[in-house]
Design a protein around this nucleic acid. Structure first.
Lengths: 198, 198
DNA sequence: CTTCACATTGAACACTTGTTCAAGAAATCT
DNA sequence: AGATTTCTTGAACAAGTGTTCAATGTGAAG
């Protein structure tokens, strides 16, 4: 068991090819474009193999959701090689980076949100991932702003997330880049604001 | 022709019952929950009648999209009975009002966005509606802030929309109301900021 | 009344869907 | 080598899909 022995050719293992195909179809055509047959075709495998690696269609979508959630979490992962406030600043800028503002990722995120609205099962997974993201962001704020009470850090993280979600959504609708840049500046402003004034 | 003669009973005309059913199903179960049969069942009519009023499934969804877009536009409609800055302020508060933060509307909006991502056809309609919304908001800003150049008004409107989209999305994910309230304050801050400082 | 346009029905069509399964290929083990 | 476990295939099935259409109901105009 353990890691599979490498196949003779150089092709990736079929299971992740299948998952990748599902992610691609989901981002391009939405959930109604993700049929087991379409996934099999896109991955270049037989229909039966999709059901071999993933019991259900549900399991397949769940795996896709999980993979995107993991990707999201990496956005707010601490980077010890940077100064505290640089960690926070680069994290805030990452959400408008080239890889992220790619339509594929944004579209994927949108379709998964929509899916979470439709199925209680996905809603739970999504909410949990969202909380972890919020925690990660709050931690970055706290490290960059040690004097700030934790409650306030979480509030700021929540405020930042609102703007970030707005940026993601608005980027999908094709608004001008300038508004995105101004919104990034706004998240920085929230993050690095003086400790409170009331 | 013209308005139909009123049916004997007090029930609404079937066409709008069908559209309403489609909206309901879309908001609750997403696009894959909207089958012609499900719509007919929900509306309490026979299957054939759905295809009688709407040629396609596409036409039905298009009508749903159109109806929500109209609702969106009404959010930024000018209200001559109010003072200019009150018009803008109430419009900004409306997006977090009880009717709007209802899950049904938000969910609908989300699923329609997702649909627009999947079908070029819907994408165009959606983009056009989005532009009209942006124009409406920019007009409100302009009226409340007569000295401000029009370009600046549009920029502020774009910034506000980013935050509003974020609020809508985040409300769906069930974040605390406090963050929403702070975000509304942020939109006001953007709208009523002094004319520029650089 | 008859006529006629409109509204409404549900059966029927061809097609796609998710899932199962017996069969076979390929790798691993003894 | 054979034995065994793991992959991989595509046919088959029942259920669901959008769309069409001949049949019927309904109410107003002639």
């Amino acid at each position: 068991m353990g890691t599979n022995t490498v196949k003779s050719g150089e092709q990736v293992d079929r299971q992740s090819r299948i998952l990748e195909a599902a992610l691609d179809l989901l981002s391009r055509h939405g959930i109604s474009g993700v049929s087991m047959r379409a996934v099999a075709r896109e991955a270049g495998v037989a229909l039966g193999l999709v059901n071999y690696y993933y019991d259900d269609k549900m399991s397949l979508i769940r795996a896709a959701l999980h993979s995107v959630d993991e990707h999201d979490l990496r956005l707010v992962a601490p980077d010890p090689s940077l100064a505290p406030d640089e960690q926070l600043r680069t994290a805030l800028h990452r959400v408008a980076g080239a890889e992220l503002l790619t339509t594929r990722y944004l579209s994927l995120r949108l379709h998964l949100w929509a899916l979470a609205q439709a199925h209680e099962d996905f809603a739970r997974i999504n909410a949990a991932a969202f909380d972890r993201y919020l925690d990660g962001l709050a931690a970055l704020v706290s490290v960059a702003h040690p004097a700030l009470p934790l409650k306030e850090c979480r509030d700021r993280a929540a405020d930042i997330v609102v703007v970030q979600n707005g940026m993601w959504l608005t980027a999908l609708l094709g608004i001008d880049k300038a508004a995105i840049q101004r919104s990034i500046a706004r998240t920085e402003q929230i993050a690095f604001a003086p400790p409170r004034d009331n």
